[in-house]
Write a protein that binds this DNA or RNA. Structure first.
Lengths: 121, 121
DNA sequence: CTATGTGCAAACTATTTGCCGTCTG
DNA sequence: CAGACGGCAAATAGTTTGCACATAG
């Protein structure tokens, strides 16, 4: 683990739970912290961390992917106005799925589109 | 509505419920039906139909998007071995979501990763 | 005739890769 | 010195767009 990789990982791990970053945002954060790093390297390391299960990659329709340090199972809610992604837990989801689908269930990705309370005003 | 657009729409609407096509596959189907059409036009028309709510666009992590004629609310199960996408219904999902998330819920996209019965053998 | 639809090629966005230099143990 | 790390530029995949021509109503 290089100094840069440590910095990337702790960026993703230590930021407020529920934050989500794109590769571009991570690049900006790292540069703000005086790393002279390139986008290719950010992507390369994000790929490594994701395949090691240290971080999680989140796809949201029609845009860049987001990365988060929270690898515990949880779901995402995307506000259609401000675009912000929030984590939320939906206990019982996997049970509900396995009652309704035959086969060996590996995981379930739930993305809820909603209008968050800030935007609803 | 041009003849081509009619053909695209009925392709998406009439095929066995639960089928999902990529833009490339639709192009191939149309050409097999003797249309001399380009990929750009397929994408253009898919975009129009999607924004009109006549078809639905489905994103699956790390690949091209799929399109389906079934616009009724339903969920998707992706087999991690064969990659096939199946429709399935999860009654009670929206209720479960609204019990656990504050805000105005618009829709919920659930994608289940699993091993289908054909692949399990 | 006017709007709509289409092909083609080029642009674009997000991401990945090859190559080669560099740093570290 | 070997192997991991990283910069740069080019490649790639999927999708979108500008433009000029064709076609339908």
């Amino acid at each position: 683990m290089s100094v840069l990789q440590d910095a990337m990982l702790s960026l993703l791990k230590n930021i407020r739970i529920g934050e989500h970053f794109t590769a571009e945002q991570i690049l900006r954060e790292l540069r703000a912290a005086h790393f002279s790093v390139s986008l290719a390297t950010v992507y390369r390391n994000l790929g490594i961390f994701t395949s090691e299960g240290r971080i999680r990659r989140v796809s949201v329709a029609g845009g860049p992917k987001f990365y988060e340090g929270n690898v515990l199972p949880h779901d995402h809610a995307v506000c259609l106005r401000c675009g912000r992604i929030s984590d939320f837990a939906l206990p019982g989801l996997l049970d509900l799925v396995s009652e309704n689908l035959k086969g060996e269930i590996i995981s379930a990705d739930l993305t809820v589109n909603y209008i968050c309370r800030d935007c609803a005003e």
